[in-house]
């Protein structure tokens, strides 16, 4: 069981690096969906005390429905309607951004060994995975031009924050977690509507066109 949990964490980090290097939007959305599904399994895999079982199932179910299914479905609709397949010219190239991502992973492991964890029983990979996923998400948002890629980056960032939140699953009341998932859902929903309007206004989902406002 323990090695299986290790595998999940490693896969999450590998997916971060894959996303940084991938130009095909369809594949990227599918990969984010897989990452979401993996993350949904984590609350159950990391469960230590059985009286939290109901809470863990609720969190896992919610995460799977939103991160693994609903949001990817929304994103697929967006690229189908805009008929785009690829992120053509990112601001930072695919290889450099992957290298930056890898540096982030190394730093995350180095950094988290320094931070004292109040809970000694926590999984050793949890904090570095969370921090490297947050970093990868930030990189994606900042370096990509297509609105879809930017939203995907935001999702990856939220995934990283979610992994970190698992550290607190017995401290935080359910309400706050529900609020977190709900907000993610609403954020992507509103972003989806805005993307729809960008597409209609400019006949493309390229945020390069959004550069009329400057000083």
């Amino acid at each position: 069981m323990a090695s299986f949990v290790d595998l999940v964490f490693v896969l999450v980090v590998v997916i971060d690096l894959f996303l940084l290097a991938s130009s095909r939007l369809g594949a990227a959305i599918r990969t984010v969906a897989i990452q979401g599904a993996l993350l949904a399994a984590l609350p159950l895999l990391l469960l230590r005390e059985t009286h939290h079982l109901g809470h863990a199932i609720l969190l896992a179910g919610g995460a799977l429905a939103i991160k693994g299914l609903f949001i990817p479905w929304l994103m697929f609709r967006a690229i189908r309607e805009a008929s785009i397949r690829r992120e053509m010219e990112p601001i930072v190239g695919f290889v450099p951004s992957m290298v930056l991502g890898a540096v982030g992973v190394a730093l995350a492991f180095a950094f988290s060994s320094r931070l004292p964890l109040p809970d000694a029983g926590a999984h050793a990979f949890l904090v570095p995975t969370a921090l490297s996923t947050v970093w990868a998400g930030l990189l994606l948002v900042v370096t990509r031009k297509k609105a879809v890629s930017q939203v995907l980056g935001f999702l990856v960032l939220e995934n990283g924050v979610y992994v970190f939140g698992l550290l607190l699953s017995d401290v935080m009341p359910v309400m706050v977690e529900a609020g977190v998932l709900l907000d993610l859902f609403a954020a992507v929903f509103v972003m989806g509507i805005v993307m729809f309007h960008i597409n209609r206004e400019f006949s493309s989902l390229d945020t390069e066109k959004l550069s009329a406002l400057k000083d």
């Binding site: 948002v141 972003m191 805005v194 206004e201 959004l210 009329a212 406002l213």
Partner: peptide
Amino acid sequence: HNARSLEATWKYLLICSL
């Protein structure tokens, strides 16, 4: 509902969400 306000909305939403 014009191109300029759309650009402003997108930036606001993305930067503030980050």
